[in-house]
Every structure is written in C-alpha cells, then in structure tokens.
Computed example of a mutant assay.
Amino acid sequence: MDVFLMKASYPLDELTIQELKALIQQSNTNENQDIALLLNADSWSNYESQGFVVLAYSEEDQLLGALSAIDLFGLNTYEWSTVVHPNYRRQGIGTALVQEFTTALVERGAAGDMGLSFHDVAGHQFLKQIGYEYNSSEATLQATAKPYEPAKEIYIRPFKEQDRDILVQLMQDGFGDMPEETDELISFNTTTLGRTLYIVEFKQKIVATVSIVENEAGLWVTALTVQQALRNQGIGSAILRWAKNEAHKKQQHKVLLDVEIDNINALSVYQKEGFTPLHQVDYFIKS
C-alpha cells in the first residue's frame, strides 16, 4: 500500500484537526487513556505553541496515521507520540512516521526528543523496536476544584522581574535546572496565553514557586517547588489548596498535575490533598 507523508506546523487548519480527532476516536480503546493527550490535541490550534505533526495518507486521501510533536518549554526539544488507524497497523506506517519526524528534527536543529507512551505493552514494544529505551514515568493526578480560605502567612502572587535570581536558585535546588533553563521557563510562562508563573512568600520571604496552565481539561499545576529547608511544613499543601481555589474561581472543575512516579515524597503530599491517579505516561529516549 502506498502511503504519502506530509508535515504541518502548529497551529493546524480546521480540516486537519477534524481528521486527527476522527483518527483518535477510532483508536481510543481505554476510557482512562485518551490518545489526544499524548498527541497534544489542546495545542493544535494554539498560535503560541511550538510544534508540528507528520501525517500519513492513503492514495484515497484517508488519514492512516499521525505523529504529533511539541516543544513544551521553548528549548528546541520535542516530546512526541504517534497513532495509526487500527485497520492499518503492523504495515510500517508508524515507522515511516518516525523516520519523517527524525528528518524534521534535523531540519529544525533540534536538541533532542522523547517518545511518549501510556503504560502499555504495545507502545513500549514499538518504541524499543525503533531504537528508544525507557527513561522515566510520570503519573497524572487529579483533584476536584473547591473553595478554600487563604492560608495564614502565605502570599501567592505573579512573578516579577526582581524575583529572577531567587527563582533561578529555587529551580536549581528543586529540579537541577540551569539558569538558562529557568530563563526559558520565565519567558514561556510569562508570554504564553493560558500560562502564569507565581511566586510564593512565607512570612514575607520567597520560599516557593508554581506555574498554572489553563486548558480544556482543567487547571494544571506545574513546576511546583519549595525551598528545601522549608519542606514538610505545609507550604506545598497550602499551594495545592490555593490552586483548587483558583480553579474554582475560574469555573474549572479539576486541578491536574504530573509527578514522577519515583518521587515518593511529592506523591504523599498530593495524595493527602485528595489527588488521585488518572493515568501514567512513560518517557523513552534514543538508545
């Protein structure tokens, strides 16, 4: 069977989006694992998003498969996943999509990429067959939005330029980020629609940071870290309650976040605040 490949950058046109949605609908088999999440569907029509798709069509112009990639943090590093129509799997379409994607990475001078899969055998086997190896896993947790009274002595406000040096230290201590990575985080979360970077003060001193992302799924908590010396004092829990309250004010029903599954301390805090598992995403890198 002849397959024709093409690439398109975000934002995608409405016809392509409808074709992709139809492909996803035909491919979803697990109600808790929506392939749209792995394919960055929320970003397809966003002019601020840096990403692209590779599309595989038949001679009859039927969409047989797709690969969607996104540069989440503006670092020219892409997270990607692929889907093939159930009736056309095991015919090399997935491999062809990845080969075209690899060519696109070279054209863009990309610094690297990570393949994403839900926690299932088929996805893992495919990524291993094309030369990727398991790297890490993240669980997506969710909690119900609800009103909360502000925590005493804790003040959460948007980032200001004079916070930059302290934020660099927080991100280095919390995530091992280099200063230039924090600069990219600041730029991305202060200029992208739907994203806001916050600073957390405790007793009038900056002690933590958190970013908030709004989309159709709900309100997402990202890049949450608390100064090491002040952990286990309820600051993280207070930030999560604040996020639930923010979601409630914005008429969002859910608060969501991603956490590495081996981060036992963070998982414990989230679970105590009523966050429950939604699904797990596994990350693979070139071996």
Rank of each mutant, 00 (worst) to 15 (best):
Asp163Trp: 07
Thr140Pro: 01
Asp177Thr: 01
Asp183Phe: 10
Glu138Trp: 01
Leu230Gln: 15
Gln233Pro: 11
Asp183Gly: 07
Glu149His: 08
Ile206His: 06
Pro179Ile: 08
Val207Thr: 11
Val210Arg: 00
Ile166Asp: 08
Lys160His: 13
Gly194Asn: 12
Gln162Ala: 08
Leu230Ile: 07
Lys203Cys: 08
Tyr134Pro: 05
Glu216Cys: 03
Arg164Lys: 15
Val200Arg: 07
Glu161Leu: 13
Met114Glu: 14
Ala139His: 00
Ala243Gln: 00
Lys128Phe: 05
Lys244Trp: 12
Leu141Met: 13
Leu105Met: 13
Gln125Lys: 13
Lys203Phe: 08
Val213Pro: 00
Glu181Trp: 02
Asn232Lys: 15
Lys146Tyr: 03
Thr196Gly: 01
Thr209Leu: 03
Val213Trp: 06
Pro179Arg: 10
Tyr148Thr: 04
Leu193Cys: 05
Glu201Val: 04
Ala208Pro: 00
Asp177Leu: 02
Thr182Met: 01
Leu167Phe: 11
Phe126Gly: 07
Ser136His: 11
Thr209Pro: 00
Gln204Asp: 14
Asn189Ile: 08
Phe188Glu: 14
Lys203Asn: 10
Leu185His: 03
Glu201Met: 06
Asp183Pro: 03
Val221Cys: 09
Trp242Ser: 00
Gln129Cys: 04
Ile156Phe: 13
Glu161Val: 09
Asp120His: 14
Tyr155His: 14
Val210Cys: 12
His119Gly: 05
Tyr155Val: 11
Ala139Gly: 11
Val106Ile: 10
Lys205Arg: 13
Pro158His: 01
Gly176Phe: 10
Ala151Val: 14
Tyr198Ala: 02
Ala238Asn: 08
Lys160Phe: 07
Glu138Tyr: 04
Lys160Leu: 11
Arg231Gly: 01
Gln169Asn: 14
Ala238Lys: 06
Ile235Asp: 05
Arg108Gln: 14
Gly174Arg: 08
Gly112Gln: 10
Ala217Arg: 08
Thr192Phe: 05
Ile206Asn: 04
Arg195Lys: 15
Val213Met: 09
Glu201Ser: 06
Tyr132Pro: 05
Ser136Met: 07
Thr196Leu: 11
